[in-house]
Design a protein around this nucleic acid. Sequence first.
DNA 1: AATAATTGACTGACGGTCGGTCAAGTAAAG
DNA 2: CTTTACTTGACCGACCGTCAGTCAATTATT
Lengths: 200, 200
Amino acid sequence: MAIIVDKEEKRRLIALSCKGLLLENGIKNITVAQIAKAANIGKGTIYEYFANKDEIVFEIIMLFVEQIQDDLLIAINNNNTLSCREKMEYFMMLVFSEAYKKEFSIYKEFLSIALCSATPDTVAFRVNCHNSFEVILETIINQGIENDELHQNAIAMIPMIRYFHTGLIVDVSIGRVNAHMEIGSFINSIFGNIIYGENR
Amino acid sequence: MAIIVDKEEKRRLIALSCKGLLLENGIKNITVAQIAKAANIGKGTIYEYFANKDEIVFEIIMLFVEQIQDDLLIAINNNNTLSCREKMEYFMMLVFSEAYKKEFSIYKEFLSIALCSATPDTVAFRVNCHNSFEVILETIINQGIENDELHQNAIAMIPMIRYFHTGLIVDVSIGRVNAHMEIGSFINSIFGNIIYGENR
DNA sequence: AATAATTGACTGACGGTCGGTCAAGTAAAG
DNA sequence: CTTTACTTGACCGACCGTCAGTCAATTATT
């Protein structure tokens, strides 16, 4: 028997080595040849570890998701000066922030691809992303319920919050919308004092 | 002098003649060659009227969506026996209904194109879609306020409702989500008895 | 010797381009 | 009024460049 490489590990390595490439050029503008070069392997080798180009992109996006998750977790757990409300705002604004501008743009492209070719793999990947975020949202909301910032049943609003957020991502990309303002209004309505849209 | 064709008219004609093709296969699975064949013109001629493939699809979509908007308005007005709550549910569900399957699919394709090429045209068009949506929603909500089904400030929730709806369109397309159930829960939460997600 | 891993030349499909043809219109000449 | 020469824009499809994905050949490991 020859060496058996850890496929999962190698996938990650390939993804890591072309993360920058993707951020810089976008999904549509990178080629598999470029990816192979950046990873210092032959193009054929790529296909030993990924079924197709989309899979590579997913793997890289997963890296971004993990990074954002870490960012969020730190903000939520190590920052007890923040109220639940502030944490929620931070949570919802993060992807729209300047710091994640490039990642946002890639995610947008991902949505675009997924919308017109929703293969089982794509769907599974997206559901996976959701779940990661819902876990964090749940933590925030539970904290809010504990210290009476939120009503018990706020936990049931998680999917609705996610739909809102997805819709906002779309509209910030396509429409003429200010994410910060919309999120502010939304959070106000969630936290009781419904002044949503007051200053539109 | 040679003949001068009405470019705008011809664009429409080309778009119309490959409407079925788009509905049947989706943008990703049709080729420009196919479009040309369906329109009974040469491939090169296509590019006399459109800058690229996306533009063709966009033209088709514009034709479609205009019609959908009219339909929606009529559908809402023809159902005056319904309560505000029922109207709202009806309105939000409409695009997810079996009857609007094709239209839903087209709108999905539009979102896909717009997400990765937000030209002034696409943005303007989408803003236009928003406005139509909001106008209809406003009518429904005003009725609800009049007959005490809804609180005054419900009108301020219109943008939020729209984001929710857009997010739902995306998630129904890419995720594993039941539109009817989510809309039911959402409407419950809007109309006061927050049992959102009760039976998820 | 056997098997795993790697590779880059190759292929087929597709979006977009370009040189060229043609029908319809104009105008000068007869 | 015809005829002939000329102009123009619509139309075309062969061709081009690009790129995702394949595969036969090669190298590395045990």
